[in-house]
């Protein structure tokens, strides 16, 4: 699926490269936090770390990079290997 989302993923990654307070990045970060709040256990320390906007840049960038590296036909296998080792 990341194949179809690649242009968006790329744009989000690119937005952070040039501007510290990019609108695209901030929108994505906001939505990411909303989804985490909806679906994850908020009492967990790890989840709290994910929600901290000052600290979650690295995990978001790595997740987006993982998806962007897996858009080829063998992307599923690649993603599986990346996730096993996460």
């Amino acid at each position: 699926m990341s194949k179809y989302l690649y242009p968006y993923i790329r744009e989000i990654l690119k937005s952070k490269e040039f501007e510290e307070n990019s609108v695209i990045w901030n929108d994505f970060n906001k939505r990411f936090i909303e989804l985490i709040k909806e679906r994850f256990n908020m009492d967990s320390m790890r989840v709290k770390k994910l929600l901290n906007q000052a600290e979650n840049d690295e995990i978001i960038i790595k997740s987006l990079l993982t998806l962007s590296f897996c858009i080829s036909n063998q992307g599923y296998q690649k993603l599986k290997n990346f996730l096993y080792d996460f």
Binding site: Y6, I9, E17, L65, S68, F69, S72, Q74, K78
Partner: peptide
């Protein structure tokens, strides 16, 4: 990061292309 992922994806396309026969990079 955007250019890095573009480059990796170009290499993936080359690896998967049936028209080019190279020693496949199987690291990922």
């Amino acid at each position: 990061n955007s250019l890095l992922s573009d480059t990796i994806n170009c290499f993936d396309q080359l690896n998967e292309s049936p028209k080019v026969r190279i020693k496949k990079t199987d690291i990922p």
